[in-house]
Design a protein around this nucleic acid. Structure first.
Lengths: 218, 218
DNA sequence: TAGATTGTTAATCGATTAACAATC
DNA sequence: TAGATTGTTAATCGATTAACAATC
């Protein structure tokens, strides 16, 4: 194990998909799979799968392939899905509430410990099993509970104000649904995973346009 | 214009971000920018910006740079943000409702024309200004309104059942929040933009793990 | 043992960066 | 005109694929 020094982000981003497919195989009672078979199911090359996995260790066996359950477990380990990182969510609007109720935090490495908003209409209400607290209470809360992850479901301007404070309060990672650009050059010891739904939508728009209305060849 | 034959997806995915930053500049009353300045703001290289833009045309002027408003408009055009592609949303649960109310479809190339669900508890209720229809009505609806895009906010199993039908009904593009893997090899004339929130979360988990608990060097 | 399939090295492909002549 | 900055070609870097010896 543990030769994972500086694995590229392209590899990391494929791991959750491996994990999902292996989980499915497991549920279907399949205990063994070769890189060739898995590649076929996942629309990848066998080479890529073997390269990816060998960033972390030799999980297979020559002549046999991979043990599905074992590999599934190894990837869970690599991703840190048992970590239970203490997490706060900022912004209890439509999106924030959907994420709070819709996502399974515990299965994915996180533990939600607080929900915050700045609107008086929302503060004091409940989302799932959380009473929404005012963002003014963040300093005290972080001092006491020391969360490491913040989910940003707030407008751009609020994010601009809150991010420096949160970093000050000890937040180390952001799951960022806002349009605020967290400058990773400015904060080297902070990790950011952006989910820009608007950008994703525009990317789709381009692709639909190309499909429906293809450019004329010269 | 229009030398956009086969632009790589890496380039396309950067366009929405350019669009957002140019919009901000515009709002701040900045009318002109060089690739060098823009690169600084966006944490990119000037080279990359010029390469990216020149996939679509020479929008700049030597010795001057780029006109912000003009470039902003060109990118809107390239992305097809005025297209108003007719779109249906499937699954009026937490996530589906959040997307319906939270996203600005019109600004991003789409027009929402219907919301569907299969649960009797939800069908007949309203989301934003839509009455939720039963998925059984999809065939009739698509025949009449001919939507081209479907947003999938439904469980994996439902997606597995519905996707082939939807393609049959003329749907050409999916914005896929479900965990169902739409096999693009199987459907060559269909475009898919996946948003796997769970995968994104797991990727973040890995990064937090590495940051908080870095691997020991040998 | 023979067959299968891995782990790993080498070759290819694509994307990013650097350099510079063209030109506003 | 001289200075600035583009558009574009060439060089570099990284990621993917192919090949094959190691080995179960």
């Amino acid at each position: 194990m543990a030769k994972n020094t500086n694995v590229s982000l392209s590899v990391i981003k494929r791991l959750p998909r491996y994990y999902r497919f292996l989980g499915d195989l497991l549920q279907n009672g399949i205990h063994r799979i070769s890189s060739k078979e898995l590649a076929e199911i996942m629309n990848l090359t066998a080479s890529q799968i073997r390269q990816d996995l060998n960033c972390f260790g030799g999980f297979g066996q020559q002549g046999y392939g991979y043990n599905v359950a074992a590999l599934h477990g190894e990837i869970a380990n690599i991703l840190g899905l048992e970590s239970g990182f203490k997490t706060i969510l900022l912004g209890a609007g439509n999106l924030g509430r959907a994420i709070t109720t819709h996502m399974n935090f515990e299965e994915k490495g996180f533990r939600l410990v607080g929900v915050f908003d700045s609107s008086p209409n929302v503060v004091g209400g409940t989302v799932r099993d959380f009473v929404v607290q005012h963002t003014d209470a963040l300093g005290t809360f972080c001092g006491e509970y020391q969360p490491v992850v913040a989910i940003l479901c707030i407008p751009k301007e609020s994010a601009g104000e809150l991010v420096p404070k949160l970093i000050d309060y000890g937040i180390k990672a952001f799951w960022n649904f806002s349009h605020f650009d967290i400058n990773s050059a400015q904060y080297p010891n902070v990790v950011v995973e952006n989910v820009h739904l608007g950008d994703s939508m525009m990317t789709l728009s381009y692709q639909v346009k190309e499909l429906v209305n293809p450019p004329v060849k010269e």
